[in-house]
Design a protein around this nucleic acid. Sequence first.
DNA 1: TCGAATCCTGGCCACCCGGCCAGTTTCGCA
DNA 2: TGCGAAACTGGCCGGGTGGCCAGGATTCGA
Lengths: 123, 123
Amino acid sequence: MSADKTAEIVLSLEIDDPALADRLAALLGNVAGIRLAVPGEQATAAIVARDVRSMPADIALTQRELDVLALMAEGASNKMIARRLGISVHTVKFHVGSLLDKLDATGRTDAVAHAARRGVIEL
Amino acid sequence: MSADKTAEIVLSLEIDDPALADRLAALLGNVAGIRLAVPGEQATAAIVARDVRSMPADIALTQRELDVLALMAEGASNKMIARRLGISVHTVKFHVGSLLDKLDATGRTDAVAHAARRGVIEL
DNA sequence: TCGAATCCTGGCCACCCGGCCAGTTTCGCA
DNA sequence: TGCGAAACTGGCCGGGTGGCCAGGATTCGA
């Protein structure tokens, strides 16, 4: 019975803003096929805030830097990034250096963490 | 009036499971006051997966591994971690090695990214 | 009592990383 | 028509990283 694919979808409302949470609760409360989870209940999916954290002025990264950053977040080494982007390792290092500078990070791990925190990338 | 509190809520559907995503899209598609975001659009909130399949039982990490992992997420080097925890660099490497193994990561950056994705740590 | 797990440490070594120096091309804008 | 920004490449090098080997100490449950 737990494998009933057509059962109603349980949504966990995880919004800090009370006003927004209330509005969503009201709107979703009487939609057939959807049910809001009671506190602590295992939900199928969750609704989380999305507008606040991406607001504070995205850091100005070039397209190439974003390419490199995305691959860094995948755990790729400079060599792998170079191969994937079809450029040399030296160029990758060049972009990584710019990234560390712009993101105020001490290393690639820190850079990915900072970028994720600021919403520049999604993990 | 962009500050109209009663404007429709834009939801970003971020569900990997195609079937679930389709069902949610169908159910939410004609709810007054709610609109699904087009790709790339700035949404008010996001709907993310939250069932058991996406939370495959927290990885069994020891307390010490969690200590090391947290410092790694701060961008700390092995040497820094060693100093902070009062242990040798060799021991830090030992724990980092275990983390890479348990988190199925290729390097410390990948390890932090994986851990963040699985909710083991908060960035 | 005997493992098993966890935590700790050391040496060794190939490789990676980040920073330094230098240069080239292409593009858009003033 | 210059000029800066972006992208790209190279050499060099000190230090960091990760994997391998070896060991020892502790606790806990079978």
